[in-house]
Amino acid sequence: MKRISAIDFAIFLGKAFFFLLPLAFITATYFVVDPFKVLGSYEDFYNTSPPHVVLNRGYVSTELYLRHYKKYQYDSFIFGSSRSLAYQTKDWQPYIGKASPFHWDSSGESLFGILGALKLIDRTGGDIKNALLIIDPLLLKQDSEDERRIAVHHPQVSGWPWLKFQWKFFRGYFERGFCIRYWDLKLFKTERPYMYEMVFSQNYFFSDPVTNDYSSAKNEEAIEANPKKYYSNRKRFGRVAHTGGGGENEAVLKDKQVEMLHDIRSIFLKKKTQYKIVISPLFDQKKINRKDLKILQNVFGERTIHDFSGSNELTRNIRNYRDSGHYRPHVARHIMKSVYEKD
């Protein structure tokens, strides 16, 4: 057989190009629909038509802050993971007086993320008059960037290169059939069980485009409508034991985290921040580790740490939870009242 000629090679390249055309088309759809809403900044991240993909809350928080901090002059912040979603700025407002609050939550939040957010606020010249940190052992344990798509922080917070961050989401579009699930729902508008894991169409939440308060009204409605049915759902409550007297969590604070705690405190001191730190009442009823609590008290002062972990009136009542990982807004209101009325 003869040696390859330039024409043969051109034909080969043409075929390869033709073969890869559908791939190029699918890739283009990612940039058109921006399913994870990370390609641009949105006035309202949640005011869109279905399918409603679970968004990266850290990105939403950061983008909303960057978009509005000059206009609204935010000066008070609630920080935490999705467990902080129960806290609403409108409930917090009475305790902080005349302030412009903003809820800066991030899924799977860590000290790394909170510190990054504080540094960003500092870089942008923002005030931090008040801060409410909602923490738990899981948040304290994580000492570096959580690279899951839902949890990875905005590059301005994490310091990641923009392309690395974008690549994570671009990859996600093709992962485990996400693209098929997404377009199936978008085109045929029929929810199918295989979609729920990724294309969250059923439990649709939204957040306030100014304060970034997150509403779980649908869950609250479902609980009110039929509590018995709601609380018998094993998927929501079966994963973590709620047996009472859950003992004590393992110690999670190591040198790296302690250093970050000191950095957080330094920023608070620099900004003359009135801050409170709430240790969440978790479904497993486990008490925060004594050593960790001591470290927190040593760094921030005993009066600022408010420990609601362990078996207590909040954690014993299953109706205080919307699922085994998250408590409900009335619990957050109770905690804020207790924390601020102490002073």
């Binding site: 791939l23 992962e175 485990r176 059939g177 996400f178 693209c179």
Partner: peptide, 20 residues
């Protein structure tokens, strides 16, 4: 053959590889 290749391509694209 082309149908087969497309099958492989889409299988890789949607259920494989790019997950890291």
């Amino acid at each position: 053959r082309w149908t087969y290749y497309y099958g492989l391509l889409f299988a890789m694209l949607f259920w494989g590889g790019l997950s890291g």
